[in-house]
Simulated assay, not measured.
Amino acid sequence: MKEAFDFLKDLRENNNREWFQAHKLRYELALEKVITVADEILLLMRKDDLIETPTGKKSLQRIYRDVRFSKDKTPYKTNWSGGLRRATAQRRGGYYFHLEPNGRSYLAGGFWGPSKEDMKLLREHFSEEADEYRAVINGADFKKYFGEVRGEQLKKSPKGYDIEHPEIDLLRYKQFLLKHPVTDLEVLSSDFPEKAAHVFGKMRPYFDVMSSFLTTDLNGIEINLDVKS
């Protein structure tokens, strides 16, 4: 991965199309290094989870930025990133890696944009039976690896719930994100795929409880959800 990080460092200093085209071969060689790492992570994750992302290459996001609605018109991202999608409606949540030099790398996962139907189910469960969820997010491993659930929250209470509701801190969430920072040394080490798979594995108890909320109603009857987070 050193070549991949070195390329990003130079790209940050020369973020323009002329430089990128002149160094296209170097980009392609760096990309192959990242694909190899992504393939290794995918292989390890498939030992303990069902992942529908077919290959490491398919997991990667494009390096080209969409600048149409951005004040920043630099054409290229200065990070490597990708995601792994869990398979079937009963396995909710997804894994994400963001690899960027100078201490900006992290491993993440969760639910970036839950649908209206998903939010309704989650809030019903939080309001009626939050103990199982709280047991997970207050667990020692969760605190050690992720600290807390991150994501956008409402400033007040959601519609239909009193501001004094005992679970109001959970009911305000609109996103449910887990994040674990990784150092440059960790990313550049030969065992980084194992490190990534290990951290992703620590997300599973959280995904399991969220999946149980999102694939059953409050009486425990399974429902079919076509929309995935």
Rank of each mutant, 00 (worst) to 15 (best):
E40M: 08
I41C: 15
L42P: 10
L43Q: 15
L44M: 14
L44I: 07
M45W: 14
R46K: 11
K47D: 15
D49T: 11
T53Q: 05
T53V: 09
T55D: 07
G56F: 13
K57H: 12
R65V: 05
R65E: 08
D66R: 02
D66P: 03
V67Q: 11
V67L: 11
V67T: 15
F69Y: 13
F69C: 10
F69K: 02
S70F: 11
K71R: 12
K71Q: 11
K73T: 13
K73Q: 12
P75I: 07
Y76C: 01
Y76P: 01
K77H: 00
K77D: 08
K77N: 07
N79R: 02
G83N: 05
Q90G: 11
Q90C: 09
R92Y: 00
G93W: 04
Y96V: 04
H98V: 02
G103M: 01
R104C: 03
S105N: 10
Y106M: 13
Y106K: 10
Y106T: 03
L107E: 14
A108V: 01
A108L: 01
P114G: 10
S115I: 01
K116C: 01
E117V: 12
E117G: 12
D118P: 04
D118A: 04
K120H: 13
K120T: 07
L121T: 01
H125C: 05
F126P: 11
E128A: 12
D131V: 12
E132G: 07
E132N: 04
Y133G: 07
R134D: 15
V136D: 01
V136W: 03
I137T: 11
I137K: 03
N138F: 04
G139L: 09
A140V: 12
A140G: 03
D141S: 02
F142M: 04
F142Q: 10
K143H: 09
K144H: 15
K144T: 13
F146K: 11
V149S: 02
R150K: 07
E152M: 00
E152C: 04
Q153A: 08
K155N: 05
K155M: 00
S157A: 15
K159F: 07
K159W: 11
K159H: 14
D162L: 14
H165G: 08
H165S: 06
P166F: 15
P166C: 08
E167W: 10
I168D: 05
D169A: 15
R172C: 01
Y173P: 03
Q175V: 06
F176M: 00
F176G: 04
F176R: 03
L177T: 00
L177P: 03
L178V: 06
K179F: 01
P181F: 11
